[in-house]
């Protein structure tokens, strides 16, 4: 989204410049450059740590018997 907007502003600035309106084209160009070149702050998604739930004695009691393979 940010990149698309930057490109659109950049294109618009050149069109306006071609139309002869330098004072409008210049800030538009600056804004487009800012949008395109300044890196976006990536929000680090906090990885939800999977909480390893240990079985309680009651849960162990209710488990079925498993084949004890060696």
């Amino acid at each position: 989204m940010r990149r698309e907007l930057g490109l659109l502003l950049n294109l618009a600035s050149f069109v306006i410049l071609a139309a002869g309106n330098l004072w409008v084209a210049a800030p538009l160009y600056a804004a487009s450059i800012a949008l395109l070149l300044i890196p976006q702050k990536v929000k680090k998604e906090e990885k939800k740590e999977e909480v390893r739930k240990e079985p309680t004695p009651d849960e162990i009691k209710r488990r079925p018997v498993a084949a004890p393979e060696i």
Binding site: T56, P57, I60, V65
Partner: peptide, 20 residues
């Protein structure tokens, strides 16, 4: 977990997986 199985009066290798 061995203690937990013991509290449940269960034989560990029959109720707990080696992965856990």
């Amino acid at each position: 977990l061995l203690q937990a199985a013991r509290q449940a009066l269960e034989i560990e290798v029959l109720k707990l997986k080696p992965t856990e």
